[in-house]
Amino acid sequence: MMAHFYSRVLGTGSYLPRIYVTNQMLAKKLAQHGIETSDEWIVARTGIHSRYFAPPEQATSDLALIAARRAIVESSIDLQAIELIIVATSTPDFIFPSTACLVQAKLGIHNGSAAFDVQAVCSGFAYALAIADGLIRSGMYRNALVIGAETFSRLLDFKDRNTCILFGDGAGAVVLTASDRPGMLSSALHADGRHAHILCAPGNVSGGIVHGSALLHMDGPAVFKLAVNILEKVAREALAKADMSADQIDWLIPHQANIRIMRGICRKLGLPLERMIVTLSEHGNTSAASIPLALDVAVHDGRIKSGDRVLIEGVGGGFTWGAVIICM
């Protein structure tokens, strides 16, 4: 098979589940456990006003399915032309099979396409996008569906106001295709397992029993300190690989974790805040879904246009981090 030099984004899609949760609603839930918080406290520390939770009957694959269908419609690609499906998630439906295989079946793709999950938490979409780009460039596949999907609300400890206020559920997707025009311009991926303990869900299943805790644990100050430094470095690494300067970037889409981290990265890169896409206020932190959700919102509201250069970057448990530069 002849190798293709580039991959390009053909279409984007996203989905948010139906349970809308404001800060005021969350404060009432925490009050049931004797924990005080308020809309003002949450907004001041995070920039989040609301988020969406999936109902019990809706799995991560269901969210991914709707986002995928929307991206496929936007791309005008035939379902059976999709040869590769990658789902970035830390909240799969099952231990196995992969959520990607479940999405493949629900989409009705029966062409033997490859399907697998990527687990890099909040960096997951950057990882998945870089993997798909590399496989398309190699000539192994021509069309890929890349999804970030999470039901993070199911990992939250609603007795810990420092973490449960941050996260929400959702999904975002892109269709990539081989092209003779530049699309994915560069990528940079990293991890450092020495920091695994500062952001984790430290439980495992053995003999049908959960050992340890299956709920999210985070050392907020440690994560904040690490994130700001490594996100600037990985962004500059991706820029150097693309032979670009920061002022050549039209849009920055950072992982939607905390508005203070996001603004800090913008300042360090010398970009005006107006060039940063922010959906954190309405969506909260949707982990691997946050970047593709924000990308889809900005594409469909007309901010991101064909030819725009977009820098995406994320940092997550593992500890993982990565950046990708896209020419839309």
Rank of each mutant, 00 (worst) to 15 (best):
H49W: 04
G134S: 15
G11K: 05
G193V: 10
T286P: 01
I42H: 06
E83A: 08
L176R: 10
D180E: 15
Y20V: 00
F116D: 00
A294Y: 01
G307E: 13
R45N: 10
F53Y: 15
E274A: 14
S113N: 11
L155C: 12
A144S: 13
A3H: 11
L135W: 14
S281Q: 15
L280A: 12
G148H: 09
S153G: 09
I72S: 02
D247S: 11
G139I: 14
L273I: 12
G264Y: 04
D219M: 03
G270L: 09
I85M: 08
A222K: 10
L231N: 08
L293W: 02
A227V: 11
L280N: 11
A64M: 05
S113T: 01
H255Y: 05
L10T: 02
T151C: 14
D180P: 05
D301M: 04
I312M: 14
V315P: 01
V310W: 01
A222M: 07
S50E: 07
Y15N: 03
V315C: 12
Q24C: 00
I48Q: 04
I209W: 00
D93I: 11
V146A: 13
K233W: 01
D78Y: 03
S76I: 00
R142H: 15
W41I: 10
S179A: 15
D62R: 03
S113G: 10
L252D: 04
A242T: 07
R51W: 07
P182G: 11
E36Q: 14
L295T: 05
D219R: 04
V146E: 13
A81C: 10
G203Q: 11
A59W: 00
M25W: 01
M262R: 02
I265S: 02
A44E: 14
N23S: 03
F116L: 13
E237G: 03
A240P: 01
I291M: 08
A132N: 10
